[in-house]
Design a protein around this nucleic acid. Structure first.
Length: 274
DNA sequence: GCGACAG
DNA sequence: ATCTTGTCGC
């Protein structure tokens, strides 16, 4: 059954300790395993692939943020700023973009490693509210279970909306790779396991380093992505989904398009706004 | 005091 | 994240 948890939405007015407590609560209700009828990675990118249920191809949404920063110290009476965050969402189905939306909200707190969702969560939830289609899966820029309290931004957003979600990060927040990550061939996945800094038994599988792209014969190397379950998706499926959606580029297509749309929409806001 | 960590 | 030039490789 679908049970959204708006009561667990990020609240920037909470104290740091309260935010961390909320994250433990979120990790507690999060499901780091596949849904019963699990999603089939191959059906996300291949329009012709038959789904086991024979229904419509699944809808995947990529979510990414850009920022409108003032960097102007004048007029900031009470220490606050006019900086804003813009969250962009690109929904795709059978390899085609079917909808794009975005939302802008004021930035209330600074970036603090481990508390990213409290800074960027509001615009994301607002943007998701604008969506007319209902994605079967969401890919967020940032961590899911690879997080000190197992509640990265992908997990937080996934639990609040109770939708399947995956975290796609470009650098490793915590956890330890089971093998070296130097110059891996495309398609390689290396387990990332919990260390003593993570709220999970040491050795717990948190996610995978996923090499979506690599140069053939050169002196230039591509770094892997760090993929982890957000909610209602297991680590293996999360890695497979990212590989299936990353044809030709390092980032999976929905996230790559959300990234460029976030930049594009920022321009529209700047000239149309005050 | 040291550690050092998504975007 | 954001601010930017140049350099590399396809």
């Amino acid at each position: 059954m679908m049970t959204p948890r708006p009561d667990l939405a990020p609240d920037a007015t909470l104290s740091r300790g309260e935010m961390e407590t909320l994250q433990r609560e979120i990790a507690d209700v999060a499901v780091f395993a596949d849904d019963d009828p699990p999603l089939e990675p191959e059906t996300l990118s291949n329009p012709l692939a038959a789904t086991s249920t024979g229904g419509e191809p699944p809808i995947v949404a990529g979510v990414d943020q850009s920022f409108l920063l003032d960097s102007d110290d004048s007029g900031d009476e009470d220490g606050g700023t006019d900086d804003r965050a813009l969250s962009a969402v690109v929904a795709m189905q059978a390899g085609e973009v079917i909808e794009r939306v975005f939302a802008v909200t004021p930035l209330e707190i600074p970036y603090i490693p481990g508390l990213l969702s409290f800074r960027e969560g509001r615009p994301i939830l607002d943007a998701l509210e604008e969506l007319s289609v209902e994605p079967d899966l969401y890919l967020f820029d940032g961590s899911g279970r690879i997080h000190f309290r197992q509640a990265g931004i992908a997990t937080h957003m996934g639990v609040v909306r109770d939708v399947p979600s995956i975290g796609v990060a470009k650098s490793l927040l915590c956890g330890s790779p089971r093998e070296d990550l130097e110059n891996l061939p495309a398609g390689t996945t290396i387990p990332i396991e919990a260390t003593d800094r993570v709220d999970a038994p040491e050795g717990t599988l948190l996610g995978y380093a996923v090499q979506t792209k690599q140069y053939e014969s050169s002196s230039r190397y591509v770094n892997p992505l760090y993929v982890s379950p957000g909610h209602r998706v297991g680590p293996e499926t999360a890695a497979e989904v990212v590989l299936a959606l990353s044809e030709g580029y390092k980032l999976p297509e929905p996230v790559r398009l959300a990234d460029s749309y976030a930049t594009e929409a920022k321009g529209e806001v700047v000239d149309g706004g005050e």
